[in-house]
Design a binder for these strands. Sequence first.
DNA 1: ACCCAGGGTCATA
DNA 2: TATGACCATGGG
Length: 217
Amino acid sequence: MAKPELMDFYVILFSHYGPRHWWPAETPFEVIIGAILTQNTNWKNVEKAIDNLKSEGCLDIRKIVEIRKERLEEMIRSSGFYKQKAERLQNFCRFVLNEYGSLEEMFHENTDKIRKDMLDLKGIGHETADSILLYAGGLPFFVIDEYTRRIFRRIGFRVNENYEDIRKLFEKNIPKDVGIYKEYHALIVELAKEFCRKKPLCFDCPLRNICKNNSVV
DNA sequence: ACCCAGGGTCATA
DNA sequence: TATGACCATGGG
């Protein structure tokens, strides 16, 4: 049996977990808000914050810019790091309005420019930028997070620590399909939540067979 | 009382 | 380049 490739893991994870329906949001803008609020924070805490924004009618790019920062801080308090996140949200929204005019306009621009612009903003790192590009913009950028690194390192892939290198490794070995990109990252998170810390990855996880046959764990 | 979560920045060496 | 401190709430 040949060494399993990245798509083999995808097939197994998908058949085990089924579609994940990521990202859980009603609009691209809501994806962006969530992507920033969920930084190093449990998603449940983010949901509360987003509910607050919705019920106050503030889930809107212009609203976020207009309201007082202190009010925004209170609405998103449950998501943690609420002061810097309020700052980051307003900063991001202000930039989009000034530079592009609207979110729709932004996503019609050259994708590499969008990514570069976002990475220049304070509070937008590689993972957040790619989450926004993929799940809000529907653009083919594979999201690499700490789960992805851990899991594929333990499976036996020689992933070095450089974000861009890992992302290109995945994008090179996976069909350039936004649907697959979205699903794959969501499946990795699902697997990680269940096995990454609690148990050895390949003991009774969905990947146990493919791992054992190749003696990689 | 700890540990951590769907990260990122900044100072230091 | 590579660690470490820091940001902060809420659930286990």
